[in-house]
Amino acid sequence: MADQPALQNIDRRRVLRNLSAVWAAAAALPSFAGLSAEALLAAGKSIHQHVARKAAPASRTLKVFNSHQNRTVTALCELIIPQTTTPGAAAARVNEFIDIYLSSLNPSKRLEFLEGLQWIDLRSHELFKKAFVEASAEQQTELLTRLSIVNSAETATGQSFFKLIKSLTAFGYYTSKIGIEEELNFQGWVEYKGCTHPEHQG
């Protein structure tokens, strides 16, 4: 570690300082002992995101979902686009997008989604004897896997709901600030240069 460049040490100190400042907010942190500077920076970034979520203004008032529906949708979205090295659908508040989107639809279209959501809980009870949000991560993954595989044996209602929420989750995530800036790493507009390849010229 002695030959680390000075800048990186400063960055690491800054991360550590920030970490100590937010210690209280971060409940289940891994031990930092023995981590490389890179791992520390990654951990720091993750904590920043965690804190940013905590510190962000209270969630927008929901227009369609009750709190149980909201938790179910949030869990489904995060399973579809999870946090990896970048934040997932829950951090991007895709559930809130789906809520406001549904609120703009005609009642029959909205009902289609809500009935699908209800189906998820019914099926979860059949399979695991508990509501979807109460099921373990493995069980949740199992249900979505049953719905997403080719030649799924699940009902048409279940399969079409999965397609719908997957589509809404992907759209909601990749149109969010997190999706565009952090995941797609959008850096700004680029000039259209088009084709400059001699092999495509006549």
Binding site: L79, I80, I81, P82, T84, G88, L144, S148, A170
Partner: peptide, 8 residues
Amino acid sequence: PGFGASLK
């Protein structure tokens, strides 16, 4: 196809 980290 699918969902999760592989979809992402």
